[in-house]
């Protein structure tokens, strides 16, 4: 069980900063997901931890000790690559055994550990195949077995599912999570798929241009984002400009939206009187006989749901409803907002 702390990590490529100030931590056995758009520095962070890159500044502590001086091959981290990086000239068994072989471990132990590892990822019986004769999902299982068989102190995965189709992705995600939990391995997982991040991590770090914008549980990230950027990246959200009328508790406020007033949760310590943004998830929106009047701009049928946009006090608001509810474009509806799916934040965080 390994604990990791990353502080002030910086890295530039030819003067272009890729990591500005990255701080992260992982408790023993925790699965941390790095989430963010392309180019925000997820891979760079992971490669610094793995030891493929030397950071320009900052420190990475594993179990309280800096690993920056530890050569890559002595770190004992398991790495799973996006393109699997299986050795094409070795069979599945040889691939998985490789990390044990270079550790000069006895043949008998290698054989039993490889067999156990292959069984764990559900590849028993495919040991003699060459990687190119395997499907993408099978190849990723080999890559996972190869990383796990060395009993890594830390598991690092860079978009391991990006090359798989949706069905397989779900299956592999569950497998990775199950194995990680069972073995209690601390893991860093890079993805730019927010569903993947939400569903299978203990904490998520949303990255934005070389920084960590927010680092918290999936629930907190989703329900209490620190900025519109984080809100938008963790799922669909509308941002309504509102006026803060009064604060009740440190994080409960009354806001005015057009002529209406409502009580919502929000970031702590906002001062009344100024303009703020109310982040509203589509599922906060319900239509009823009373409420704030709005005009339906568009609506589309998605099978399990019905989604669209209304115009409310001159602002766009996304909604999702039951597919059988009657919502017609151009008609006027009355909107009620569920404060549980809304979050108030200062304009600066927009």
């Amino acid at each position: 069980m390994t604990e990791v702390r990353i502080a002030g990590l910086r890295k530039s490529f030819g003067g272009q900063p890729a990591l500005v100030d990255v701080a992260l931590e992982a408790a023993p056995g925790e699965m941390i997901t790095l989430l963010g758009p392309s180019g925000c520095g997820k891979t760079t962070t992971l490669r610094c931890v793995a030891g493929f890159l030397a950071p320009d500044g900052g420190d990475i502590l594993v179990d309280g000790r800096s690993i920056l001086d530890v050569p890559l091959r002595r770190r004992d981290f398991g790495v799973v690559f996006q393109n699997y990086a299986l050795f094409p000239h070795m069979t599945v068994t040889q691939n998985v055994a490789y990390g044990l072989r270079v550790r000069r471990i006895g043949a008998a132990e290698i054989a039993s550990r490889v067999a156990a590892s292959l069984a764990e990822v559900g590849l028993t019986g495919l040991g003699d195949r060459l990687p190119r004769t395997l499907s993408g999902g099978q190849q990723q299982r080999v890559a996972l077995a190869r990383a796990l068989v060395i009993h890594p102190r830390l598991l690092l995965l860079d978009e391991p599912l990006a090359n798989l189709d949706a069905q397989l992705r779900q299956e592999m995600r569950a497998l990775i999570r199950a194995v990680q939990r069972r073995q209690g391995i601390t893991a860093f997982y890079v993805t730019h798929d927010q569903a993947e991040a939400m569903a299978s991590s203990d904490r998520v770090a949303v990255m934005e241009r070389g920084r960590v914008a927010q680092f918290a549980t999936p629930r907190e990230i989703y329900q209490r984002p620190v900025s519109r950027y984080v809100a938008a990246f963790t799922g669909e959200a509308s941002a309504l400009a509102v006026t803060l009328r009064a604060a009740h508790a440190p994080d409960r406020y009354t806001v005015g939206l057009g002529d209406a007033q409502m009580e919502v949760p929000g970031a702590a310590g906002l001062s009344p009187g100024s303009r703020h943004f109310l982040m509203v998830r589509p599922q906060a929106v319900t239509f009823g006989p009373s409420g704030i009047p709005a005009t339906v701009r568009e609506v589309a049928f998605f099978g399990a749901t019905q989604q669209g946009e209304v115009e409310l006090a001159g602002q766009a608001l996304r909604f999702v409803t039951d597919p059988n509810e009657r919502v017609v474009a151009g008609e006027t509806v009355h909107v009620t907002l569920d404060p549980a799916h809304a979050w108030l934040m200062p304009e600066a965080a927009a």
Partner: peptide, 22 residues
């Protein structure tokens, strides 16, 4: 808001899981 603030704002029961290192 920096990342450090963000993690400091985490619910207390999670913060307790990280032993404070050096």
């Amino acid at each position: 808001m920096s990342a450090a603030d963000a993690s400091a704002a985490r619910p207390a029961q999670e913060g307790a899981r990280v032993p404070s290192g050096r």
